[in-house]
Amino acid sequence: MDKFEKIKLGISIGDFNGIGIEIILKAFSDKRMLDFCTPIIFGSTKLITNYKKNLNINIPFNGIKQVDRAINGKVNILNLWKEDIDLELGEPTELSGKLAFESLEAATNELTKGTIDVLVTAPINKDNIQSEDFKFPGHTEYLESKLDGETLMILMADTLRIGLITGHIPIAKVSETITPELIKKKVEILYKTLVQDFAISKPKIAILGLNPHCGDHGVIGKEDDAVIRPTINEIQNEGKLVYGPYAADSFFGSSNYKNFDAILAMYHDQGLAPFKTLSFGEGVNYTAGLSKIRTSPDHGTAYELAGKGLANINSFKEAIFTAIKVFKTREEYKSLTENTLKSNQRKEKL
């Protein structure tokens, strides 16, 4: 990409009866946002117009039928359907789930083709989006099925980054799912993303324990001593700065998390509960490990706020800025590694 060329930012609308479209419109009501990217919203001008009228937001946009018709300095809307859509704000419906998937699918296809550079997803309802074409627990698993790579869900705010060893699975299955192979794979993904996406040359990673007090030497569970600790030792022997397991109940309250570039939690709520306590409304969900870049805000559809003009846009704006920054950092990393490879090849020929 030319350094003067603006990043093409694809946006899926999520469930239109939630706050997704509201936070998109509010974010780009600030015209300065257009200095950083060229936004392309995957939806329809009719739907967006209805939402604008409901919220009394006056923001001009450019309707397009193809991504390559997007105009810099404009909010572009790629028209996916022509029908008039009745809003039922605050109520998840079959139609809002159907169109949420159509928006996501179209955006993902363009991301795969490289016609957009990054994807920011507005919140979906994981129930009403389910269909023959979407049988996934969430965005993360769907994107992993469509893009190259294996995913790691990372919640981040400033220097706080929390990744998940297991994601959207029932708590009853967490213990049996955690294996040395899975831990090593997630560490490898996290390590690579810290280097190539965040420019941290020698990342320092903490791993939380599974059981209370890391099992108290087997009194409250054997997984920490039998599986997690030996695996961490093996990873350390490879030269990576990986430490743990740490008891999750005191790790964040003691501010120990500030000593690390990233943390790996064993399961969803173990990582997200402290993260949202520390950073709710300011955080970003980043899908690491894929060939393309996707971010989202750290909240859901918030039906209770839909149509009231009360939705906070900070997390969504941070998701936009994070996607742009990660894209640029990854491009710089690719350039540096390619130049290093070429330099080494020239030396070998001499």
Rank of each mutant, 00 (worst) to 15 (best):
N259Q: 09
D224A: 11
Q236S: 08
Y246H: 08
I232D: 08
E234Y: 04
Y243N: 01
N259S: 11
G244S: 06
A262G: 09
S254A: 12
S255H: 15
P230E: 14
H268G: 05
G271V: 03
I220F: 15
I228L: 14
P245A: 12
L264E: 00
Y257G: 06
G271K: 00
V219P: 01
D261Y: 03
N259A: 11
T231L: 15
V227Y: 13
Y246M: 13
N237H: 10
K240L: 13
Y257C: 05
Q236V: 11
V242D: 06
H268F: 12
D249W: 04
D269A: 10
L241W: 03
G271S: 05
Y257E: 00
Q270Y: 07
E223C: 12
S255Q: 13
L264R: 02
A265M: 05
K258Q: 10
D224C: 08
V227E: 14
N233E: 15
K240H: 04
A248M: 05
N233M: 14
M266A: 10
S254V: 01
G221P: 04
Q270N: 04
V219E: 11
R229Q: 15
G244P: 04
A248R: 01
G253D: 05
Y243D: 08
V227Q: 08
V242A: 07
A265C: 04
F252G: 00
I228A: 11
Y257D: 07
E238W: 01
E238P: 01
I235M: 02
A265E: 06
A262Q: 03
D249L: 05
P230M: 10
Q270G: 06
A265N: 02
F260S: 02
I232L: 09
G244E: 07
E223N: 07
G221S: 07
E234T: 08
P245Q: 02
D261S: 04
A247V: 04
A226Y: 12
G271L: 06
Q270R: 05
G244D: 08
I235S: 00
L264Y: 03
I228F: 13
A247S: 15
N233K: 14
E238Q: 10
L264A: 04
V242S: 04
S250W: 03
K258E: 11
I232C: 09
V242E: 09
K222D: 13
I220N: 14
Y246E: 09
D249N: 03
D224E: 10
H268V: 14
H268D: 12
N233W: 00
V219G: 00
A226F: 14
G239N: 03
N259D: 11
A247Y: 02
I263M: 07
V227D: 13
G221K: 01
S255T: 12
D269G: 05
Q236A: 10
Y257H: 11
F260P: 00
A247N: 02
G253R: 03
T231W: 13
G271R: 02
Y267F: 13
K222I: 15
Y267H: 11
K222P: 06
S255E: 15
S255D: 12
D269H: 06
A265Q: 06
P230S: 10
I220Y: 15
N256P: 00
E223Q: 10
I263K: 02
I263S: 00
K222T: 15
G239R: 07
D224K: 00
H268M: 12
Y243Q: 11
R229C: 14
I228D: 13
D224L: 10
G239E: 04
S254D: 10
E238S: 11
Y257W: 15
S254R: 05
E238D: 12
Q236R: 13
G221M: 08
K240I: 06
E223K: 03
F251S: 01
P245V: 09
G253M: 09
